Amino acid sequence: MTLTTVEAGAYLHHIHLHSPDPDALAQFYSDTMDMPVIERDGDVIICLGSRRRVLISKGPAKKLAHCAFACRDAIGLRRIHERALQEGLDPRTFSTPLLGPGAFVVRDPDGNQVVFGLAKAVDEVKGGINGPIQHLTLASQDIGAIERFYAGMLGFAVSDRVRSDDGEVMTCFMRSNHEHHTLACFLHRDRSGIDHHSYEAGDFTTIRDWCDRFADRQIKLIWGPGRHAPGNNIFIFIVDPDGNWIEVSAELEVVYDRPVREWPHVERTLNMWGDGLMRA
Results as ranks from 00 to 15, higher is better:
Ile133Gly: 06
Ile133Lys: 03
Leu138Ala: 14
Leu138Ser: 11
Ala139Val: 10
Ala139Leu: 14
Asp142Trp: 08
Asp142Lys: 11
Ile143Cys: 12
Gly144His: 03
Ala145Leu: 13
Glu147Asp: 14
Arg148Asp: 10
Arg148Lys: 15
Phe149Leu: 09
Tyr150Thr: 09
Tyr150His: 07
Met153Asn: 13
Ala157Tyr: 06
Ala157Glu: 07
Val158Lys: 05
Ser159Glu: 05
Asp160His: 06
Arg161His: 10
Val162Trp: 03
Arg163Gln: 12
Ser164Asn: 07
Ser164Leu: 02
Ser164Pro: 02
Asp166Pro: 04
Asp166Val: 09
Val169Ile: 15
Val169Tyr: 11
Phe173Val: 04
Phe173Gln: 05
Phe173Pro: 00
Arg175Asp: 02
Thr182Ile: 01
Leu183Phe: 01
Cys185Glu: 01
Phe186Gln: 07
Asp190Val: 11
Asp190His: 14
Arg191Asp: 05
Ser192Lys: 11
Ser192Val: 14
Ser192Gln: 12
Gly193Asp: 14
Ile194Trp: 10
His196Leu: 02
His196Trp: 04
His196Ile: 00
His197Arg: 12
His197Ile: 04
Ser198Leu: 10
Tyr199Gly: 10
Glu200Ala: 06
Glu200Asp: 13
Gly202Pro: 02
Thr205Tyr: 15
Thr206Leu: 01
Thr206Phe: 01
Thr206Lys: 00
Thr206Ala: 03
Trp210Val: 07
Asp212Glu: 07
Phe214Gln: 01
Ala215His: 08
Asp216Val: 11
Arg217Trp: 05
Gln218Met: 14
Gln218Tyr: 15
Gln218Pro: 08
Lys220Tyr: 09
Leu221Asn: 01
Leu221Arg: 03
Ile222Ala: 10
Ile222Leu: 09
Trp223Glu: 03
Pro225Val: 06
Pro225Ile: 07
Arg227Leu: 08
Ala229Gly: 11
Ala229Met: 14
Gly231Trp: 00
Gly231Phe: 01
Asn232His: 10
Asn232Trp: 05
Ile234Arg: 03
Phe235Gln: 01
Ile238Glu: 00
Val239Asp: 08
Val239Gly: 05
Gly243Lys: 06
Gly243His: 07
Trp245Phe: 09
Trp245Asn: 07
Val248Tyr: 02
Ser249Leu: 05
Glu251Asp: 09
Leu252Ala: 08
Tyr256Ala: 06
Asp257Ala: 13
Asp257Cys: 13
Pro259Phe: 09
Val260Thr: 09
Glu262Asn: 08
Glu262Val: 14
Val266Ala: 15
Val266Ser: 09
Val266Lys: 11
Thr269Met: 11
Thr269Ala: 13
Met272Lys: 09
Gly274Ser: 10
